[in-house]
Amino acid sequence: MTNSIDNKALYAYLLRLADSSLTMGQRLAEWCGHGPYLEEDVALTNVSLDMIGHANIFYQMAAELSDEAQTADELAFLRDAHQYRNPIITELPKGDFAFTMMKQYFMDTFNFFLYEGLSQSSHEPLALAAQKALMEVKYHLKRSETWLERLSLSTEEASKRIQKALDDLWFYTPELFETDATMNKLFQQGVIGDYGELKKKWDSHVQAHMNHCELNLPETGWVATGGLEGEHSEHLGYMLAEMQFLQRAYPNSQW
């Protein structure tokens, strides 16, 4: 089965997974020392660590498929914004705590169903990575789900902020489910699951939790798109400039 998989398509898809995890991990890491209280500060950076761990695994898999003898580090630190394939939502500045938790909730729910599907992948290394990531994502989701509940059903200030976060982020979520020709190829080969199904599961799970939290989904707004083709918001460039600085200024330096 492995031989029939389109390596170029798989490489591109692995970059989408890795770039999404890395940008999320980097944004969460920005909370280090800025969390609302100590335990939460530790939690935010622990989730960040998991995300960067996932990114590392996917970059390594991508590097093995690459024709150009790339390393995982090169993929993370030496590609520019237009080569990143993450959806725009993961690169957005961290905002306030409500914004971060709403973004986290959307992504945790997405990752939960995504990795659940990828656990069945016909490409064994990907299935193994997804099975492992899924165990960690369960805890991420449990935490962000609880925070949404806590913030939306508590003080007026908290519920105002979490509703605003929902309004600001909602139309960034359709992009998560976008597919392209290469992904369709992988779907046919059993490497990835059906993104249509993924969207259905995500929608019903999120809708139910929003109702439970008494939050209102916004009706209209600008719908984000472009990450899959390397078209990003201006935020990614700034983020990469900071994240990649050391490797660009001192090429090949190591810890």
Binding site: N46, E136, R143, T146
Partner: peptide, 13 residues
């Protein structure tokens, strides 16, 4: 439970 993530990712507080 004070926090789902404690001193390391594998522990809760």
């Amino acid at each position: 439970c004070i926090s789902e993530f404690g001193s390391t990712a594998c522990k809760a507080l």
